[in-house]
Computed example of a mutant assay.
Amino acid sequence: MKNQLHLQHDWGPVAGELVEIRHGGQAVRAGIVDGVTADGGILWLAAQGAEPRSMFERSQGFSVWIEYRWESAAAQ
């Protein structure tokens, strides 16, 4: 994730996307979203290398940041 990241308010559309999870403004983990609850309150990042599948809850203060595809395409 090299380009500018944007806060994603609606977690539903990020299923299958590469995102960065932040808590208190600090990056916690980056990865592919493996699943999102129907209400968009919880998401899971897929296991990657030594990192297990992980759950993040909006109510716990986590936020999702994503690179917009049209920005990364324009940079190429």
Rank of each mutant, 00 (worst) to 15 (best):
K2Q: 09
K2T: 11
Q4Y: 06
Q4K: 15
Q4R: 12
L5D: 01
L5N: 04
H6D: 06
H6Y: 09
H6P: 01
L7G: 04
Q8N: 09
Q8R: 14
Q8H: 07
Q8V: 14
Q8E: 15
H9R: 10
H9W: 02
H9G: 04
D10H: 05
D10T: 01
D10Y: 01
W11L: 01
W11A: 00
W11K: 02
G12P: 00
G12A: 09
P13A: 07
P13M: 09
A15I: 11
G16H: 05
E17S: 13
E17M: 12
L18P: 02
E20D: 13
E20H: 07
E20G: 08
I21Q: 01
I21S: 04
I21A: 03
R22D: 00
R22H: 12
R22P: 01
R22C: 07
R22L: 08
H23M: 14
H23Q: 15
G24Q: 07
G24P: 02
G24V: 06
G25S: 05
G25H: 08
G25Y: 10
Q26I: 13
Q26G: 07
V28Q: 08
R29C: 08
A30L: 05
G31F: 04
G31K: 05
I32S: 02
I32N: 01
I32R: 14
V33A: 03
V33T: 00
V33P: 00
V33I: 07
V33Q: 00
D34Q: 14
D34H: 12
D34T: 03
G35F: 03
V36G: 01
V36N: 02
T37Q: 06
A38V: 13
A38W: 11
A38S: 12
D39G: 04
G40I: 06
G40W: 03
G40K: 06
G41N: 09
I42S: 05
L43N: 03
L43K: 01
W44P: 00
W44F: 15
L45C: 04
A46I: 02
A46L: 10
A47M: 07
A47V: 07
Q48E: 15
Q48C: 10
Q48V: 08
Q48I: 05
G49R: 06
G49W: 05
A50C: 03
A50D: 09
E51L: 14
E51S: 12
E51T: 08
P52T: 08
R53I: 05
S54F: 00
M55H: 03
M55W: 03
F56N: 01
E57T: 08
E57C: 08
E57S: 10
R58A: 10
R58T: 03
R58S: 06
S59H: 12
S59K: 12
Q60H: 13
Q60N: 15
Q60W: 10
Q60E: 15
Q60A: 15
G61W: 07
F62N: 04
S63Y: 02
S63Q: 12
V64L: 05
V64R: 00
W65P: 02
I66M: 11
E67Q: 12
E67K: 04
E67N: 10
E67I: 09
E67G: 09
Y68C: 09
Y68K: 14
R69D: 11
R69C: 06
R69H: 14
W70T: 13
E71Q: 13
E71P: 01
E71N: 14
S72G: 04
A73C: 12
A75N: 14
A75Y: 08
